[in-house]
Computed example of a mutant assay.
Amino acid sequence: MSEAISARTSRIGSVVTHAVLTVGAVLMIGPFLWQVLTALKSESEVTNVPPTFLPLEWVWDNFAEVFTSLPFGQQLVNSIIVAAACTIGQLAFCALGAYAFARLEFPGRGLLFALFLSVLMIPKQLLILPQYQIMSWLGLLNTLPALILPGVFSAFGTFLLRQFFMTIPKDLEEAAVLDGAGRFRIFYSVMLPLVKPALAALAVITMMHAWNDLLWPLVVNTDPATMPISAGLTSMQGQFRTNYPVLMAGSFMASIPMIVAYLALQRQFVQGIALSGVKG
């Protein structure tokens, strides 16, 4: 009798769990689906009251109009370059810094790491003015390096990778030292391959942040040819009129690269986030 009750309770729990997950999935997919359907409507239809869910007339020309409304292709390439450069830079610099904080013994390591993490408490908006002045002094305004340089360093990325490095047994390093490996060879050949999930997680987070960043590109780059796609799409919003179907079409196309990148690194991303707080 108890086994039957337990099995019934387990089935009910499974049904409830799947129902909650289904509702959550619908809520997450809903805005994205609405964006796609809006991109296929006419400009007059999006202002109908009550609104229509499916387009009364499927307007595919909205996607082509995006390329005539702004230099979409160039801005998309700019975003890809900026996201790739920021990701590679953070993986390199954060991995080196994290390994030093996790494995190297030097005076003031704890204090220096605490000061390093204190950067996370500073609102990003407070750094815009000094960063803008630096870019101006370097003559990098309206250039892609102005978008890339502030994004190649990350206190969060260093902390994330440090947590992973601390889970790796020191016996592996000692064995490598006995084999005659130097410090950099140990870092590159022994330690980095063991933190691939964390590197993948940091890569996804960095790519998404660089791709979606809006405030800094609007401040430092005013030339449409050097803007990323996030800043370029804002120019399609007018003071008195906005063509929402075309804007949604551009937003949908701009989101495709990040969706592909996340799907490619999904397993490593989830594993990296799940294990980042585990300390051996």
Rank of each mutant, 00 (worst) to 15 (best):
V82G: 08
P71M: 04
V77P: 04
S42H: 00
A85G: 06
T87M: 14
Q75N: 14
N48T: 11
S79A: 13
P55F: 02
S69A: 15
S79C: 10
T87K: 14
I80C: 07
P55A: 04
V77R: 09
P55W: 04
C86S: 12
F72N: 01
L56R: 14
C86Y: 01
S69V: 08
T87G: 13
W58M: 06
D61V: 08
T52S: 13
T52F: 08
V49R: 14
V59M: 07
V59D: 09
V82R: 07
A83D: 05
V49D: 08
T52C: 05
I88N: 01
P50M: 12
T52P: 02
L56S: 15
L54C: 02
P51E: 08
V77F: 09
N48L: 14
V66D: 01
S69E: 14
F72I: 01
E43W: 06
E57Y: 12
P51C: 13
N78H: 07
F63A: 03
A84M: 11
W60C: 00
I80L: 14
T68N: 11
W58I: 13
P50I: 12
D61T: 15
P55V: 00
W58E: 00
S79F: 10
W58H: 01
V46Q: 00
L56M: 09
W60R: 06
I81Q: 05
A84E: 09
P51W: 11
N48E: 14
P71K: 06
I88R: 00
A83N: 06
A84Q: 10
W58T: 08
P50Y: 12
S69Q: 15
P50K: 12
L56P: 00
T47G: 08
I88T: 08
I80F: 12
D61S: 15
V66M: 05
P71Y: 06
F63Q: 04
N48Q: 15
P50F: 12
T68L: 08
G73Q: 05
E57W: 12
P51I: 10
P71F: 03
Q75F: 07
L54A: 06
I80Q: 05
N78A: 05
A84I: 13
P51R: 11
V82K: 09
I81H: 05
C86D: 03
T52N: 11
N62C: 06
L54E: 01
T68D: 14
I88H: 00
A83R: 04
F72E: 00
P50T: 14
V59W: 03
F72R: 01
